[in-house]
Amino acid sequence: MKNPLFQYVLSLADDALIIGQRLSEWAYRAPFLEEDIALSNISLDLFGRANLLLEYASEIKGGGTCADDLAFKRNEREFFNHLLCEQPNGDFGKTIVRQFFFDSFYLLFLTRLAKSKDLQLSAISQKSLKEVTYHFRHSSQWVIRLGAGTQESHEKLQNAVNVLWVFTDEFFNMNDIDKMMVKQKIGVDRQALKVEWDKEINKVLKKATLKRPEKGHIISGGKEGIHSEHLGHLLSDMQYLQRAYPDAEW
């Protein structure tokens, strides 16, 4: 069985990497120039976090692996991000709702992970917390503006919430590795975050005049490398140069 700590760190890295990649697709396409800068700022923060985590993961793995090897040479079944992260951008509303679910979860998660016995994870979390706080402010404010803005924006946001809701539960699943890490006081009890997350989400959704969907079909599998069909396309784009020129250094 793979080193559980390696797996744990990799999963956290993949979340940041994949959603960062999605955000970076918004270059020159945002609703106005100021927002272009805001989104690319957030994607830079996420790539920074992914890089730190991938560097740590490659340390754990050893054997001369580096962060780029992990980012550019793994295949679809070897990525362990949550499914929400790889969902396509859609319109600005869908991107913002995806970001809102992600940021609200990670704000709670990283606050706990900052107390990890693992010094690296603790340090990375503390550094990321400042950024995530800012990201959450940005995405939640936009959810409110768009939810409570016009009839059109309200409908688009409600639709986005309905479509992406099925991917939120996955964040609170504890697989064997999560359980192992919690036992070692390295990882975070995800289930324990659910109640607080619900509270925070409900606050924002209320201000945004948006309805919280009924609990229905849940989709998960990302942490086991079972992904939606979107990930393959994302990776073939992202990894293209390294795969086309395996002997080259960039």
Partner: peptide
């Protein structure tokens, strides 16, 4: 809020 964020980003 947006003005402050945009100013910070820019």
């Amino acid at each position: 809020e947006m003005a402050l964020q945009n100013a910070r980003d820019l």
